[in-house]
Design a protein around this nucleic acid. Structure first.
Lengths: 330, 330
DNA sequence: CTGAAAGCGCTAACAT
DNA sequence: ATGTTAGCGCTTTCAG
């Protein structure tokens, strides 16, 4: 039924080794026999079986990607960066959304490893003991994207999240704000902790008193942001600025402020995070921390190819971030 | 180095066939020997090699997905639907973005076929002769998502695009509009043609004269929408309503209108398409055609599993759409 | 309920 | 420059 390398060999009157050589672009083939083989391939409609090749060569040219949610603009953009570079190096990617569920993450990684991926890209806020364990169980190269290994043992590419958070809060403080609301994710995750630290550090540097009430932990989505902001606005002494976990949350914050007949940025200034497409698609346009999502994906994929090829490379890449000032701040 | 099924067999004192049986949950194994095998697996840290399994069984439990751009909210949402159902049936997905480039689409499909995917999901506006050809070259089940095969030979799941377009324009006409701008994609693509037809049909049904100037073909993104809308507004006799290709374009249209110091919906009404997350995250919130993106992905993946298992099933599934009226129309 | 043996389609030495 | 020969790690009859 299916035509194999063996059929091509017979048709072309050569051995399968020779067919394999021309298929794989090996130069040691006489032009005339190469032509014969190519013709046989064409005639028979031969399509190489990558699974067989993978078994024989122990390389699958596919890499596994585990991320929280592909439907999120943030991760989708990273995924695109990953894909483009993967493609450039002739890798395919197997994508899996984990919803940040540890058990599921582990299961997905295990599954990917069974599929013999040549490398693994992991995007997720938290690196538990279980993660460390499964990562240690394999020699497949792994790189962390957007996170960091608390133990600094795994390669990663990311921005300096604590610094970025610090920068945003520092910017607000320098504009005179003393009460800055923080709409953030769970402080139990590593990332949540890091961002919390950045916030606290900025306050400390300017000797501004810390108020627990100004910290609201939410799921990072629009609806939760609406509610979380309401909580902030209902405070007896409400904040004059809000730093949001990401752009979607920032948009929610703005709308919640507007719902209270207040004005952004005149009454309350809002700063987002990420600079996803939406940042420029709302009015007022968002002042936000620019995180180079596409590049994070692209660079980590590039790093992974180097690891796969056992090339020398930096193992902890920190990409630049910056604050883009637009209309949601004065 | 790597532990194989053979190692497990030796450790457990059984044959590899038996190990294979317990790994694959075959019932014909005595509980006591099953236990022995499980212990050996645990002790050795055995991880089945899916590539070898794929070669032997001719099933890879992975399906290929070709879509225009994973970083687009529209496709990312569909991808999530695909993924969830794929996971439910224990399939992995290999994702590839094509940028709607025909040559690249063909190449990606070919590559996926080499990888012996068990099924293929294709999302793209256009089905050329080349597509038909490569699809015909394999017996791997294929389903079209969001599009339709002009020749009605391939399974597909979609909404009735022409009807949806008609509905939106019809709605606008019934509100008294006679000059309705259409910000659309290229009419050369099959989809573009279908949507154009829906627009024209609605006009015809209400005996409203057609004006070519009201049709502006653009790339479906925010920036292009800004420009395209400007073109529309600069018309000597400008439209009183605009129907946009998708929500992002609609947002661009709204902002372009506002840039001209006009008001939405009072001066110009705007209708979007898709109902992506952004529709509710802008002010005014978008009136838009609701396209069930997640379901389109989920249902097509479900259909694909049926095809793979050679089960009976409908081959042309049309999912419902509807117009969600919000603030961008009066 | 369990084992033996023959592939699955290809790559990679090793010869020639 | 080309052919021969072992596997790669697993599934799947077929026996027993």
């Amino acid at each position: 039924m299916t035509v194999t390398i063996y059929d091509v060999a017979r048709e072309a009157g050569v051995s399968m080794a020779t067919v394999s050589r021309v298929v794989n672009g090996n130069t040691n083939v006489k032009p005339s026999t190469r032509k014969k083989v190519l013709k046989a391939i064409e005639d028979l409609g031969y399509r190489p079986n990558a699974v067989a090749r993978g078994l024989a060569s122990k390389k699958t040219t596919t890499i596994g990607v585990v991320l929280p949610d592909i439907s999120s603009a943030f991760f989708a953009e990273m995924a695109r960066g990953i894909e483009d570079i993967a493609n450039m190096y002739h890798y395919n990617i197997i994508l899996s959304s984990s919803d940040q569920n540890v058990e599921r993450e582990i299961q997905l990684i295990d599954n990917l490893l069974e599929k013999q991926v040549d490398g693994l890209l992991f995007l997720g806020d938290n690196l538990t003991e279980e993660h460390q364990q499964i990562f240690a169980s394999t020699k497949v190269p792994i790189v962390l994207v957007g996170t960091i290994d608390p133990k600094h043992q795994l390669p990663s590419v990311r921005i300096n999240l604590e610094q970025a958070t610090f920068d945003a809060v520092d910017y607000l403080i320098k504009k005179g704000h003393k009460r800055i609301g923080l709409l953030t994710g769970s402080r139990k995750s590593f990332i949540g902790q890091v961002r919390y630290n950045g916030y606290v550090q900025a306050l400390k540097d300017h000797q501004i008193p810390f108020d627990e009430n100004l910290i609201v932990e939410i799921q990072p989505n629009y609806e939760a942001a609406l509610k979380g902001t309401k909580t902030l606005l209902d405070l007896s002494e409400r904040p004059t600025a809000i730093f949001a976990y990401n752009d979607e949350v920032a948009v929610g914050a703005i709308h919640a402020v507007q719902d209270e007949k207040l004005h952004v940025p005149d009454d309350i200034e809002v700063v987002g995070f990420d600079n996803t497409r939406i940042a420029q698609m709302v009015r007022p346009m968002l002042t936000t921390i620019v995180q180079p999502m596409y590049d994070l994906g692209a660079v980590s994929m590039r790093l992974l190819t180097k690891l796969i090829n056992k090339e020398e490379t930096h193992l902890d890449v920190v990409l630049p971030h910056r604050l883009e000032v637009r209309q949601s701040t004065k």
